[in-house]
Design a protein around this nucleic acid. Structure first.
Length: 273
DNA sequence: CCAGTATCCTGCAGGC
DNA sequence: TGCCTGCAGGATACTG
């Protein structure tokens, strides 16, 4: 579900919503997610602890607890965090619930269980394989310099490359399609067959589309919502994602869809070469 | 090391 | 109406 803009929106909501609060109880039951959910371990570490920060790296959320360590959360495809009253109905597939010192709750819901919540002891963060392998942040000022040579060294389709979290962290299927359309690059074009000039252009459009989406609170396609239940408003600005068969906003010809590395990609055969 | 595919899981839409 | 298939914002383990 969530790509960088959605995760960043969630992070900001947690930063404000959890400010000054502490954990007054942990509830849930062990379940197999992308990493096993160890409710007992999490409870033993955070119960009674105060929230000190909410950080983000790529699509990973990092919630710090007063020197105790960090709860690392990935929302996968269907994951959602809810900051709500205890009277709020409990959704199916609510795996973890933190009772908060103000009487509210933070709930982690994930029907498909492609996400996870994993406890990191102090110092473990740098060793975590998922975090350690992440590429450059799209909002990093150096990104436009660092990324193009990396893409140029690979034979895979550029679409696959900007989805590769080891190269650039946080871009998913929606923003990959949008960035490629803005840059005028055919998604199937191999990285090594794309000029550095055009790859620089792609780096710029990627940063731009991510920035604009963050400003709009992300994109709601079906069920994404912020912890407060708000939707993301970037959907109205999507130009190609989910619009196969419709006219290209630039040239008016019909947008096509192709499957690349198992993921659908919408693109304009006329504008994207 | 690199590139491509299969796989985890549930919910929902569309075809018959 | 109901059953079946395929698809969905992702990451990783495998294969060649």
């Amino acid at each position: 579900m969530p790509e960088l803009p959605e995760v960043e929106t969630v992070r900001r909501a947690l930063e404000i919503g959890l400010d000054g609060l502490s954990v007054a109880g942990v509830d849930g039951h062990p379940v197999m997610m992308r990493r096993p959910l160890d409710v007992g371990l999490i409870a033993s570490r955070i119960d009674g602890r105060r929230f000190t920060a909410a950080r983000r790296r790529g699509k990973y959320l990092l919630v710090d607890f007063d020197g105790a360590g960090t709860l690392m959360i990935h929302l996968g495809m269907s994951g959602r965090l809810m900051l709500c009253e205890t009277t709020e109905p409990i959704l199916h597939h609510t795996h973890l619930t933190l009772s908060l010192s103000d009487g509210r709750e933070l709930r982690f819901v994930d029907p498909r269980r492609f996400g996870f919540a994993h406890w990191l002891e102090p110092g473990e963060e740098d060793l975590d394989p998922s975090l350690a392998g992440l590429g450059v942040e799209p909002l990093d000022p150096d990104m436009e310099v660092l990324l193009p040579p990396l893409l140029h060294a690979r034979r895979s389709p550029v679409k696959s490359l900007i989805l590769d979290q080891h190269l650039i962290a946080g871009v998913g299927n929606i923003y990959a399609a949008e960035a490629l359309w803005r840059a005028g690059i055919r998604p199937t074009r191999p990285g090594c067959r794309t000029s550095l000039t055009r790859l620089r252009r792609l780096a710029v459009t990627t940063r731009e589309v991510i920035e604009e989406a963050v400003a709009q609170g992300g994109t709601t396609i079906r069920d994404y919502a912020t912890p407060a239940g708000d939707f993301g408003y970037f959907a109205v600005r999507l130009q190609v994602y989910g619009k196969e068969g419709q006219p290209c906003p630039r040239c008016g010809r019909v947008l096509k869809d192709t499957r690349i590395a198992g993921r659908i990609t919408v693109w304009c055969p006329h504008c994207q070469r």
